[in-house]
Simulated assay, not measured.
Amino acid sequence: MITGINTAIAWVLDQDAAKKFFTETLDLEVRADVEMGPGARWLAVGVPGRPDVQVALLVPGPPALDPESGERLKALLAEGALVSKGILTACTFTVDDCAAVHADLAARGVTFFREPEPFPWGVSASFTDGTGSCYELLEPSRTW
């Protein structure tokens, strides 16, 4: 029986830039930053006080992907193809007040491409990390 989710993957083009964005802008904490051999690094962040879930910030390519697939995914990230409509989010972050978190992050320079908007499942906004991936803020509906 599945009892939870431990790790989600967000593909990034630059792990150092992603680490800075997630820790300094989003106030997440580093869970792991380990060299895994030539050209491979396991970098994971998470919400302080919530050790059960982390987001791995990985550069497309070996060992997670074969070199050809990694290069294709890097090209998609570089051109912003995964962000353009905000449909494919790397991760959804739950918040208590989407409008307030949106305002705070926008003031910190985060680029939003969808402002807070109500849906049956809650209030949602989408933003980019500047390296080709997009993320969602979600204030879950109490009635969904």
Rank of each mutant, 00 (worst) to 15 (best):
E24K: 10
T25G: 01
L26Q: 10
D27M: 03
E29D: 13
E29C: 11
V30Y: 07
V30G: 04
R31E: 01
A32H: 09
A32S: 11
D33H: 05
D33K: 01
P38Q: 14
G39P: 07
G39Q: 06
R41I: 10
R41M: 11
W42N: 05
W42L: 07
L43I: 09
L43Y: 05
A44W: 00
V47I: 13
V47F: 05
G49V: 06
R50S: 09
A56F: 02
A56L: 02
L57Q: 06
L57F: 06
L58H: 12
L58W: 14
P60W: 01
P60E: 04
P63A: 13
A64R: 10
A64V: 14
L65P: 03
L65I: 01
D66Y: 05
P67I: 10
P67C: 12
E68A: 15
G70C: 08
G70F: 09
L73M: 07
A75K: 12
L76G: 12
L76P: 01
A78G: 02
A81D: 10
L82V: 01
V83T: 07
S84Y: 13
K85S: 09
I87P: 01
I87N: 12
A90Y: 03
C91N: 13
C91V: 15
T92P: 05
D96K: 15
D96A: 15
D96L: 12
D97V: 14
A100F: 02
A100M: 03
V101W: 06
H102S: 07
A103H: 03
D104I: 06
L105F: 14
A106P: 04
A107C: 03
R108T: 01
R108K: 14
R108Y: 03
G109T: 15
V110Q: 06
V110F: 10
T111P: 02
F112W: 11
F112Q: 07
F112V: 09
F112C: 09
F113A: 05
F113T: 02
E115A: 15
E115Q: 14
P116F: 08
P116N: 11
F119H: 14
P120G: 09
G122F: 05
V123E: 12
V123W: 13
S124L: 10
A125C: 02
S126M: 10
F127M: 07
F127K: 08
F127Y: 09
T128Q: 00
G130P: 09
G130C: 08
G130K: 05
T131Q: 13
G132P: 00
